[in-house]
C-alpha cells in the first residue's frame, strides 16, 4: 500500500510575496524603482526647455512617434502610462497596508518622547500622499489641460510650461512637491536597495551616497525649470 503523501499545496509565489511584510516591501521597492527610472528620464527631457521652443516641442512630438512604425502613434507613451499607473497603484496599496500594520504593531507611544530617525524617514508616508496629490494636479495641468491657467495648447508644451510657471501657485505647488520628492527619493532609494538585499556593511556608504546624489540631482533638475521661467531665462 502506498504511503500517504502530503497533499497540501504550496501557496503560489504571488500569494507568498503579497502576504509577507518582506514580500510587500519588495513590491514597494520594485514599483518605486520603476517610478524613479521614469523620473530620471522625465527630468532629463525637461532640461530640453533650455534649448528653446523648437527643441522642446520637437522632443514632445518625438515622444509620441517613438517606436514607429513598429508601434502606432502614441503607443509607446500609452505603454509607459499603463506601467506607471500600475507602479503607482502597487506602491500606494502596499504602502497603505504596511503602514496600517506598522501602526497596529505599536499602539501606544512612549511617555518620554524623543525625535526618532531622520526627517526624510519620518516624512515618507505624508510625503508620499503629497506626491500622489501633486501627480493628479500635474496631469490635469500639463497633460489634459483641465486646470491649466490660460489657454492650454495641445502640442505646444513650451508655452504651456511657461503659462503654469507664470502663476504664483503653479510655482509654489511644483517646488514644494519637488522638495518632497527629494526627501522621498533619498530615503526611498536606500530603503529599496536594502529591501531587495543589495545592502551590506561594505556597500552601505555607496548606496547612501547614491541615494543623496539621486535626490539632489532630481530635485535641482526639476526645480531649474520653474526657476528659469521666474527669472526670465526661459520665456
Amino acid at each position: 500500500m502506498a504511503l500517504a503523501t502530503r497533499t497540501d499545496r504550496k501557496p503560489s509565489l504571488t500569494r507568498t510575496v503579497w502576504d509577507s511584510t518582506v514580500g510587500k516591501k519588495a513590491v514597494m521597492a520594485v514599483s518605486g524603482l520603476i517610478m524613479l527610472t521614469y523620473l530620471a528620464v522625465h527630468m532629463f527631457g525637461n532640461l530640453k526647455i533650455f534649448f528653446g521652443a523648437g527643441d522642446f516641442n520637437g522632443y514632445a512630438h518625438w515622444l509620441r512617434t517613438v517606436g514607429e512604425p513598429f508601434l502606432h502613434y502614441e503607443w509607446a507613451l500609452w505603454i509607459i502610462r499603463v506601467v506607471l499607473v500600475a507602479a503607482v497603484v502597487a506602491h500606494a496599496v502596499s504602502a497603505y497596508q504596511l503602514s496600517r500594520r506598522d501602526i497596529r504593531a505599536r499602539p501606544s507611544q512612549y511617555v518620554h518622547r524623543r525625535p526618532r530617525a531622520s526627517y526624510a524617514t519620518r516624512t515618507m508616508r505624508w510625503g508620499g500622499v503629497i506626491l500622489g496629490l501633486f501627480i493628479v494636479w500635474h496631469v490635469l495641468d500639463l497633460t489634459t489641460g483641465t486646470v491649466h491657467p490660460g489657454g492650454f495648447q495641445s502640442g505646444h508644451p513650451y508655452q504651456n510650461v511657461i503659462d503654469t510657471f507664470s502663476t504664483w501657485y503653479g510655482n509654489t505647488i511644483y517646488i514644494v512637491a519637488m522638495l518632497a520628492l527629494g526627501l522621498h527619493v533619498q530615503h526611498g532609494f536606500w530603503s529599496a536597495a536594502q529591501t531587495l538585499g543589495a545592502g551590506s556593511a561594505a556597500r552601505d556608504r555607496i548606496l547612501k551616497t547614491l541615494a543623496n546624489v539621486l535626490a539632489l540631482v532630481l530635485t535641482l533638475g526639476f526645480i531649474s525649470v520653474p526657476v528659469a521661467v521666474m527669472t526670465g531665462v526661459v520665456s
Binding site: 504550496k10 507568498t16 536594502q194 538585499g197 545592502g199
Partner: peptide, 20 residues
C-alpha cells in the same frame, strides 16, 4: 548591524524562488 536586515531580505527573496 542594520545590513543584517538586507541580508535576510536577500535570503527571503532567494527562498521564494527556490521554494519549489
Amino acid at each position: 548591524p542594520l545590513p543584517s536586515i538586507a541580508a535576510m531580505n536577500k535570503e527571503w527573496l532567494r527562498a521564494t524562488r527556490k521554494a519549489k
